[in-house]
Design a protein around this nucleic acid. Structure first.
Ligand SMILES: [Mn+2]
Ligand SMILES: [Mn+2]
Ligand SMILES: [Zn+2]
Ligand SMILES: [Zn+2]
Lengths: 143, 143
DNA sequence: ATTACACTTGCAACATTATTGCATTTAAGT
DNA sequence: ACTTAAATGCAATAATGTTGCAAGTGTAAT
């Protein structure tokens, strides 16, 4: 991944190496998600692409396809809306991290500094089988 | 709460002391939830009450009303469906516990033996503000 | 027991989020 | 340029949840 590569080229490359065609809709979608610090809903992606007038079904299908190819992660954060974020190709295979959703304002944040600890060893399911952690509550803004 | 009290009487009492009218639909709903070891969706409650032929809007409204009166807890467990469970009037005011949802079979379990621990102190939001914890993954049944 | 009335219900319409079918268009290899 | 499987636009559909309103009912006062 060349450091001189711009966002457009990066997105195109990402899509192509996933075995998908680099269409304008996909490139634009990936650029939007790349510039976001937290996962975005379909509606949020659509809003940022409104000038391109891409059909909502197309955006949904592209998001779904990119999830299937492990380019994006789809998370269900508890407010009945899917959110999508780019999977960073970092050190760990399982770089999934907890997410926090504010029940007041709906803001979402990625939490890299929280870990889980099991009190007793009794219960099923085991923590090893946990693939996603969602915390809900009141963010600092909403006190 | 008399130990001889049957489920019907218990439900009626619970509803009345919440300041609501003890209608057949509400009593039946509470009895169903009382007999369940994990939170139930609206659809699951409806299924168990199908012989009573209660309108779905009524069930939704009753569930919502009982949540407003702190008789039930409504949880968003990440699969875009609300779930409802009875709030046990036990020791702690905040007796909310983490829930686990299997992404394969959809089963839900209440986890009483898991606690959260924060790695660093940097991040917002603080854990004190977290009101709900949801774990998603693969249950023991689904390996 | 009867009555009165606010609370509750049933029904249908509506809202939101997401998915699917199909004809048309397009990306990309040749 | 040509070819074709992949992708898109559009409209219909599904699933979950909400709302308006007329009719029915639980409760308490009489
Ligand atoms: Mn994240
Ligand atoms: Mn529970
Ligand atoms: Zn907030
Ligand atoms: Zn399972």
């Amino acid at each position: 991944m060349n450091s001189k590569m711009n966002s457009q080229e990066w997105a195109r490359e990402k899509i192509r190496s996933a075995g998908l065609r680099a269409t304008p809709a996909r490139i634009a979608t990936l650029k939007v998600l790349h510039g976001s610090g937290s996962p975005l809903t379909h509606a949020e992606v659509s809003d940022k692409l409104e000038n391109l007038e891409i059909d909502k079904a197309t955006i949904f299908r592209n998001l779904t396809d990119l999830v299937a190819k492990n380019v994006l992660r789809r998370s269900a954060l508890g407010d009945n809306v899917w959110r999508f974020e780019i999977i960073k190709e970092s050190a760990h295979e399982h770089d999934s991290h907890p997410h926090f959703v504010c029940v007041d304002c709906g803001s979402v944040s990625c939490m890299e500094d929280v870990e889980l600890k099991q009190k007793s060893t009794s219960a099923s399911p085991l923590l090893e089988h946990v693939t996603e952690v969602v915390l809900r509550g009141h963010c600092n803004e909403c006190a």
